[in-house]
Design a protein around this nucleic acid. Structure first.
Lengths: 325, 325
DNA sequence: TCAAAAGTGTTATCCTTACACCCATGT
DNA sequence: ACATGGGTGTAAGGATAACACTTTTGA
C-alpha cells in the first residue's frame, strides 16, 4: 500500500482428510526442511490464474493428486514470520492460508498417490494424545502432563495472559484437569504444548534448546503445518455436530456401525450405541437402502444412505453428539 | 513460489464493534470508491514491522483511533479479484484479511473519532433486515422476499448448486421460510441477496445493471466490507453462546437488564426475561457488586460485574440462549 | 451351539419454554 | 396511588444419559 514493499506470496496449505481403515487420515508429503519427514501439501496462489483462493486450492490439488475434494473450508491465515521461517530470513515473505478439505480414497488410488511421494497417514500419528478411542492415552500421563506441570512451575503466571487466562487455567481447561476432556480443544492443547517446549517445532523455532519431554510427542511437521492440522481437527470435530459432513468421508452406502465408527474416529472417543442410533434417527439424516451387508461378521447390518433432503429441511443438520452419547 | 510474480499486498480490515445507546455499532470511515459513503477501517500488513497480522492490526488501530481493542478474531481471507476490484484491474493485487474486534467507547472519545473522519454507526444501518427486536422487519416482506422470489423464478435451479443446495433451499433456510429465522445465518442471507442483485454491491461488481429491488436494502460499502461485516455479525452472534465476550462491550458494572439488552441488540431479537436471568445465574457468569442503580426509572436494579473466574472454571462459558429464551 | 455383531425398550434426570404474579422506587 | 421497570416460583414437555436385553447371522 506504500513505500519499499517486501514481496509477499500466498501459500495455500491443505489438511486433506479421508477415512482409511477406520482412521481419519491426512494426505502428507515429504518435508522440505530436512528437519521433518512430513509436511502438508501446499501450492501457491496466483491471482492471475485463479479467481478465488478456494478455486486455486482445488486447482493444484486436482493437478497433483487426482483426488476430488468435497467440502473445502478455509481455516486461518498466518503471516507469522517468527514461526514459519526462523532460520531462513531471506526470500519472499510467505503468508499461508490453511484449509480443511474432505475426500474419499479408493484403495486403487493409493499407488498413484504414493508414486507422487505422498500418502495418507492417520492424523493421530501427529497428535497421538487426541485419540481416546481405546481409553485415556498413556502418553498424557506419562509424557505430556508431567512436562506441562514442569513448565507451569517455572512459568511466571502474571506475565502470560492469553485471552485473559493464566497458563494454569488454560492447561486446566484444555487438558480437562478437574473437568472433562473436550475433544474440540485440539488447537489449545497444541499451542500449550508448543509454548511449553514439548514439540519438535518448539525447538526448531528456537524457543527451546531441546524438547522438554521424556518421550515422543508425535511426528513434527514443516512450518506451521501441524498447527494447521490441529486447527483442522478442531474444526472438523465441531462441524460434525451441525453439518452432515461425515457423509463426505463415507461410501454412498454404509451401516450404522460404520457411521458410528467414523464419527468416533474423528472425535477420538467412543460414543454410546443406542443413544447414537436414536440421535441419527431423530436427525433424519439417513434412510435405509433396503439392502443388508454381511461383511462385518455376525448378524447382517442394514445399509443406509445419506438423506440429502435434510440439507433443505433443517438449518443445522448434524450429529449433535453429547458428552457421552 | 515461481515465475513472474504479480505483486500481492495484504490488507487488514476490521469490523470494530462497540455498544452505543443500546445498538451494536461498527467504526466506519468514508468510502474511497466515490461510490459508497462507507467503508471499514483498514490498514496494510507489513511483515517487517509486525510479527503477526493481529499485532499489525492492533498497531494501526491504536495509531489511528486511540481505541483499545479487547477480543480480536480473524474472520476470513479473500483473494477475490472479481469482487474486490472489478473496474480497476491495475495496481497490486490486494488480499484482504477480515477481523472482528470488540471495544468500548466513552462518549468523550467520540469527538476525536469524528475528527479523524470516522464514527460509530449501528450495524443495522447496513443490514436492516437483521434487526428483529421490534418484531419482523417490514423490509423483509416489502422489499427483500418479493425480489428474492423473483430471482428464484428466473433462476435455473439445476445449474447452481452451492454446498449441495439449490437456491430455493438456501433461501428457505436462510430466510426461515417454513421454519424459523436463525439469527446466525447473516452471511448466507447477505450472499443470497448479493447473488440476487438486491445490493448496491451486486451492481458495482457488474453482476447486474440495476438493483433488483423496489426499496432500499441498507447502506452499501466499499470492496467486500459489507460481506466482512456480515461475517462479523454471524461470528459474534454465535460466539456469544459459548464465550463471555458480551462483557467486553459492557461497562464494568451493569444491571441484568442492560446485559439482556446488549445480548438482544447483538442477536437482533428479544429474549425471555426470566429464562435469560436463570441462564445467567446458572452459568455463574456474573456476581452482584452489592450496589444498585436508580438510573433506569422504576425500582432500582442490582448491579453486577463479570465473574472472570468462569474463564478458568468452564470450558465454554457463554450465554446459551435458546430459540426463545 | 456359540461367538460376534445388530438392533431394541425403558427410565431418571436435567434443561427449555412458558405461564403469571409480586416488589421497590420516583412522581 | 400509580406508573415503571426489577425481580421471582412453578410446572409441562422434551432432550440426554444410562441402564440391560433380544435377534440374526457364520463358523
Amino acid at each position: 500500500m506504500r513505500e519499499g514493499k517486501e514481496p509477499i506470496e500466498i501459500g495455500l496449505n491443505a489438511a486433506i482428510v479421508a477415512m482409511v481403515d477406520n482412521d481419519p487420515c491426512i494426505l502428507r508429503v515429504p518435508g522440505q526442511d530436512e528437519l521433518f519427514a512430513d509436511a502438508l501439501p501446499m501450492g501457491p496462489f496466483d491471482p492471475r490464474k485463479h479467481r478465488t483462493m478456494e478455486i486455486g486450492l482445488r486447482g493444484w490439488v486436482a493437478e497433483q493428486t487426482a483426488l476430488s475434494l468435497g467440502h473445502v473450508e478455509q481455516l486461518y491465515t498466518f503471516g507469522d514470520r517468527g514461526r514459519q521461517r526462523p532460520r531462513d530470513d531471506h526470500g519472499p515473505h510467505v503468508v499461508s492460508v490453511g484449509y480443511l478439505a474432505l475426500t474419499r480414497v479408493q484403495p486403487e488410488q493409493m499407488p498413484a498417490i504414493r508414486l507422487a511421494g505422498a500418502d495418507f497417514r492417520s492424523w493421530y500419528a501427529f497428535l497421538p494424545w487426541e485419540d481416546w478411542r481405546a481409553g485415556r492415552p498413556a502418553i498424557l500421563d506419562e509424557v505430556i502432563l508431567p512436562a506441562i506441570r514442569q513448565w507451569l512451575s517455572r512459568t511466571d503466571e502474571t506475565d502470560y495472559a492469553s485471552r485473559g487466562l493464566k497458563p494454569s487455567a488454560r492447561v486446566r481447561i484444555a487438558f480437562g484437569l478437574g473437568s472433562q476432556w473436550d475433544e474440540e480443544h485440539v488447537l489449545d492443547r497444541y499451542e500449550l504444548m508448543y509454548s511449553a517446549g514439548l514439540l519438535a517445532e518448539s525447538v526448531r523455532d528456537g524457543r527451546y534448546d531441546a524438547i522438554q519431554a521424556h518421550g515422543p510427542t508425535g511426528r513434527g511437521m514443516d512450518h506451521d503445518h501441524r498447527r494447521i492440522l490441529a486447527t483442522a481437527m478442531s474444526r472438523l470435530r465441531a462441524k460434525l455436530k451441525y453439518r452432515p459432513v461425515v457423509f463426505e468421508l463415507l461410501p454412498d452406502e454404509f451401516t450404522l456401525t460404520e457411521l458410528q465408527q467414523t464419527v468416533e474416529s474423528i472425535f477420538g472417543r467412543s460414543v454410546h450405541k443406542q443413544n447414537f442410533r436414536r440421535l441419527v434417527e431423530k436427525a433424519e439424516l439417513v434412510e435405509p437402502t433396503g439392502a443388508t451387508s454381511t461383511e462385518t461378521g455376525g448378524r447382517p447390518a442394514a445399509l443406509f444412505r445419506f438423506r440429502r433432503e435434510v440439507l433443505a429441511e433443517r438449518p443445522a443438520p448434524g450429529l449433535r453428539v453429547g458428552r457421552r452419547g
